[in-house]
Write a protein that binds this DNA or RNA. Structure first.
Lengths: 211, 211
DNA sequence: CTTGACAATATCGTATACGATTTGCAACGA
DNA sequence: TCGTTGCAAATCGTATACGATATTGTCAAG
């Protein structure tokens, strides 16, 4: 973060992994990356180590770094973590929501519903969820949600564009938002929880069929 | 982890921070650490960067690393995260608990109650909580709980030995364990939640009095 | 005595260099 | 043909070296 040379490397590689441009298992050669950015290996290594701690990259001694591959079980476990973090975030956020928050979210959902490009669904979905949690004001919590999101990213992007269509999530998003507007924390949290649990079931089914 | 030279540095400094030997704000000089371990600065930097991503250390450009200082608000927010993660972990763990888990926890609590050394309370408390969550089998979740625990460590160690005594936590621990033995997820989670919320209130009070 | 400018020192960040390990390939023998 | 062995190239991990930046101490002017 404070590190001039490593920072662009970190950002670029991270973005490439999240966008799916770098597939799991892809090797990340230090010299190659260093040359590309016109720097030495040392800041490159620091960027890669950082991604390692974020669980996006794996190091093997004397073999270097590769884009991390998640097992099926881990994906389901990460969704359990999402349930924990996001339900709590929503619970904390609802009492802080104001009129403009609701209208922003409504606008976003309307926009979302009209998008036909499958590629954008994933990003818009992500954005809606974050709008729900931001009023919590709990930055460490929001950061953790982002981290988990990043780890699941590759996987869910594929899933969203195949398994679940647009209708079911949209309906559930609406239900959650309505409960928020009513200030009904219990209902909203229950709806969010079910929303993520359904995703979890879809992932499980997707994997069973050999995704 | 895969990194021979940096690993001992990482472990040592991390342990020193968690044990409170390195106070928040304390500078971590690279050359000094390197000499102490008989290595160069480069692996030292990697160890420190790793601790930075774990939020235990802060870097300032051209000023180096210091042990991170948490603000009062952040401590309370981290406790909100504990509520999220630990309640979920317990929920997932209870269905997997077997007789030996219960007896291990009972034994531990009995042992705990007889300790008179305040210094040990914090560690025994930590251990009990982890025994509750381990049967969840969700390793990524357990790792996150550990991370949050580490960030709160310095703070709670002080608190446990001052604000709350031994009686109240022990009673609550007992309540949680009894609900687990009864297989009553709802009651157990509610009790755990209240347990952490009480800690949160104690921290808030402690800070208000200028801890 | 205080304050500001400047020099000396300490510390950091990273490029370069090099030994260590792994990987790819080719020559050889079964 | 196929598996082995050994060498060459690729890649890694880290020590050393050095320019850049921050910190500290000194001295002169006010």
């Amino acid at each position: 973060m404070t590190d001039a040379a490593a920072d662009p490397v970190y950002k670029d590689i991270r973005a490439a992994i999240l966008a799916g441009e770098l597939q799991p298992g892809a090797p990340l050669r230090q010299d190659e990356i260093a040359k590309k950015f016109g720097i030495s290996k040392i800041p490159v290594r620091e960027a890669l180590r950082r991604l390692e701690v974020e669980n996006l990259v794996t190091f093997e001694r004397n073999k270097g770094a590769t884009v991390r591959q998640y097992s099926e079980g881990e994906v389901l476990q990460l969704l359990d973590i999402r349930i924990a973090l996001e339900c709590r975030a929503l619970e904390l956020a609802i009492p802080n929501m104001i009129a403009s928050d609701f209208s922003d979210m409504r606008t976003h959902l309307t926009d979302y519903a009209q998008r036909t490009e499958v590629a954008q669904w994933s990003e818009m979905n992500r954005r809606f969820h974050h709008m729900l949690y931001e009023p919590s004001g709990n930055q460490p919590l929001l950061n953790m949600i982002n981290d988990v999101e990043a780890r699941l990213g590759q996987f869910l992007r594929v899933l969203v564009s195949t398994a679940s269509g647009l209708e079911r999530p949209m309906r559930e998003h609406n239900d959650i938002l309505m409960a928020c507007e009513a200030g009904d924390i219990k209902t909203a949290v229950a709806a969010l929880r079910q929303h993520i649990e359904t995703t979890q079931k879809e992932v499980a089914a997707f994997l069973r069929r050999g995704g």
